[in-house]
């Protein structure tokens, strides 16, 4: 959750945070976007564990964005399992292959920029990632 729950919280952001380098890139890029105020990062594990607060939050959000490292797409499928069709970004589709993607600060920044651009292009017109307020 954002430090201020009324800040940017209508758009929720999830990373697969998988074990591979691509999963780590997804996680760290999402954290960078969160710190930059693009959207509120939340816990994919909470959704997977069917914790009511996380599931209700996903259902109440205007937009859910999931970032997966590889095509297995665990994050996307976790949201789909509870009936939500998220904006899905898979780093492998952007050229970051599992086992071939060094996790450097430069790569994290580049991936974060690419995620933001892709998410913005897929975002419903009425929902700016930074315009919403949970209140």
């Amino acid at each position: 959750m954002a430090n201020d729950c009324c800040n940017n919280s209508r758009v929720l952001l999830y990373a697969c945070s998988g074990a591979s380098d691509a999963g780590e890139l997804a996680d760290r890029a999402v954290r960078k976007l969160w710190e930059g105020g693009f959207a509120a990062k939340t816990c994919l594990a909470g959704v997977g564990a069917d914790i009511a607060g996380f599931v209700s939050s996903a259902r109440g959000a205007d937009v859910n964005i999931v970032v997966d490292g590889c095509p297995v797409a665990c994050a996307r499928k976790s949201l789909q399992r509870i009936g939500i069709e998220p904006i899905s970004i898979i780093l492998a589709d952007l050229g970051y292959k599992r086992g071939e993607s060094a996790v450097t600060e430069e790569a994290i920044a580049r991936v974060a920029d690419e995620i933001k651009a892709m998410a913005d292009s897929k975002m419903p017109a009425a929902t700016g990632a930074s315009s919403g307020c949970c209140c």
Partner: peptide, 8 residues
């Protein structure tokens, strides 16, 4: 509570 957006 795991709540990321309010009100709840």
């Amino acid at each position: 509570h795991g709540v990321m957006i309010t009100p709840a």
